[in-house]
Nucleic acid binder design. Structure first.
Length: 436
RNA sequence: GACCCUGUCGUCUAACUGGCUAAGACACCCGACUUUCUAUCGGGUAACUGCGGGUUCGAAUCCCGCCAGGGUUGCCA
């Protein structure tokens, strides 16, 4: 029997990291075993079921590169893939339960499922065999008086109808799984194989909630994470790929994935490691690819991109210094704007010695005299200025850095000057001198 | 309360069926390098493996008890 897994989010208006990781583990399992990934929208709660809420989930999944073989937008043989459109299917299964004598209707009109009240064992790929004693809970409601159905029932019916072979979901469902198995049995079917994966906890140690930093996948996109980095990081929580390094691409992760190696203890979410991984991915990009992904962030910061080649080089010049795309503007804005203020440590550096003015003026002169504007010629012009002023090159460089960029950090000074061009280089040095 | 899952550096995790000095990554600290850095390189702090018993020549690993954290216990999903 070929593998069929599913991710079944309810439309809440955003994709939660925990949900994303659940989707991701399902996806890995499907791809690893050549199975099908089904996406089903659990929108039985009409109040929350909006188009915007639904697309937020789909967008999040697509951004992460998690695709589905059946579900919204792609269709499939066992649809519809929205629970809100499956009423007749549920009605049919309710009748089946009725025929089996397993339901009864309350005075209020709600329908309850009669538990078998026998011990039930969940055979779980992650947690092993977990046995629940015969329950003493009241029978569970599966249909409301208004005719709509409750989660546990529709979830089971859909998994059954959609031929789901493996249910990979958060551990918060483990305690209710016996109810699902009871339902499967009552419908004369055997339950799928379960794998309950550990929960994602916030740094405080409780279940990640909407409010926690990093809870919504859309935030990662906005803050300049690359989807492959987030994908990679999420894999590392609760599962250890057996590899030399931790930066691993999708194909490798699929190849290494083994559901039985998923841990059973919860994991806290560590944003700084996710950032570190993102930095690794940024560095691995070509200059062109990096510029393509950084560009929207430059535009958002209102930097005017006139010369693409220059902009590409500017972004590339700080590639190793940045871990999020959103950090680029603050590192490169002076390549695009002339009115960026000098940072305070730059001003104090410039004013630290009275002779700094003449040093810079000399540099301006030797740079003006350069024939061809290349990094090499810029380097020798600066060296010449230093020699003329009888100081070390190392004494002049920081001044020039501050004068040209307004910052005491950044790419090499010759690179800054080269990318700025002869004219702006000259202007900015004189501007700095006027500040002294 | 009851039931379920879990417990190794601050965090994520290693440690084959019990066997080297409990390993790595992130973070942090220090140093070096460099014209600078949130970069790079090097080094370091950090876990009596939750606690207490037991089995064993030997326990992170097996057993018991306790404690702690998380989860479930809806006419939410």
């Amino acid at each position: 029997m070929s593998v069929r897994v599913r991710f079944a989010p309810s439309p809440t208006g955003y994709l939660h990291v925990g949900g994303a990781r659940t989707a991701l583990f399902n996806w890995l399992y499907a791809r690893k075993h050549g199975g099908k990934m089904v996406l089903r929208i659990e929108d039985t709660d009409a109040a929350r079921n909006t188009e915007a809420a639904r697309s937020a989930i789909l967008d999040g999944l697509r951004w992460l590169g998690i695709d589905w073989d059946e579900g919204p937008d792609v269709g499939g043989d066992v649809g519809p893939y929205f629970q809100s459109q499956r009423q007749e299917i549920y009605d049919r299964h309710l009748q089946q339960l009725e025929a089996a004598g397993r339901i009864y209707t309350e005075d209020t009109g709600a329908v309850r499922f009669r538990f078998s009240r026998e011990p039930i064992t969940v055979h779980d790929l992650v947690c092993g065999d977990v046995t629940f004693a015969a329950t003493e809970e009241p029978d569970m409601t599966i249909r409301r008086p208004d005719g709509s159905y409750i989660f546990h029932f529709v979830n089971v019916v859909d998994d059954l109808e959609m031929g789901i072979t493996h249910v990979i979901r958060g551990e918060d469902h483990l305690s209710n799984t016996w109810k699902h198995i009871d339902l499967f049995n009552a419908l004369g079917q055997s339950a799928p194989t379960y794998a309950h994966i550990p929960l994602l906890l916030n740094p405080g140690g409780s279940k990640m909630s909407k409010r926690d930093e990093g809870a919504a996948i859309a935030n990662y996109q906005e803050e300049g994470y690359l989807p492959e980095a987030v994908f990679n990081y999420l894999c590392l929580l609760g599962w250890t790929p057996r590899a030399e390094q931790e930066k691993l691409d999708r194909e490798t992760l699929v190849a290494l994935f083994d559901a039985s190696e998923i841990h059973s203890s919860n994991a806290r979410f560590d944003l700084s490691k996710c950032q570190w991984l993102n930095a690794q991915y940024l560095r691995a990009l070509s200059d062109e690819a990096l510029f393509a992904v950084a560009r929207p962030f430059l535009v958002h910061a209102e930097l005017q991109i006139e010369d693409e080649a220059m902009a590409t080089a500017a972004v590339a010049s700080v590639k190793e210094k940045v871990s999020l795309l959103s950090e680029f503007p603050e590192w490169v804005h002076y390549f695009f704007k002339d009115d960026s203020p000098y940072e305070s440590d730059v001003v104090s550096k410039l004013r630290s010695k009275p002779e700094n003015a003449s040093l810079l003026e000399t540099a301006a002169e030797t740079l003006e005299a350069v024939d061809e504007w290349t990094e090499a010629s810029i380097q020798s012009a600066i060296a010449a200025a230093a020699e003329k002023e009888e100081v070390k090159v190392g004494a002049l460089m920081p001044l020039l850095r501050g004068a040209l960029s307004g910052q005491m950090r950044g790419p090499g000074v010759t690179t800054i000057a080269f990318l700025l061009g002869r004219e702006k280089t000259h202007q900015r040095i004189l501007q700095a001198v006027s500040l002294i």
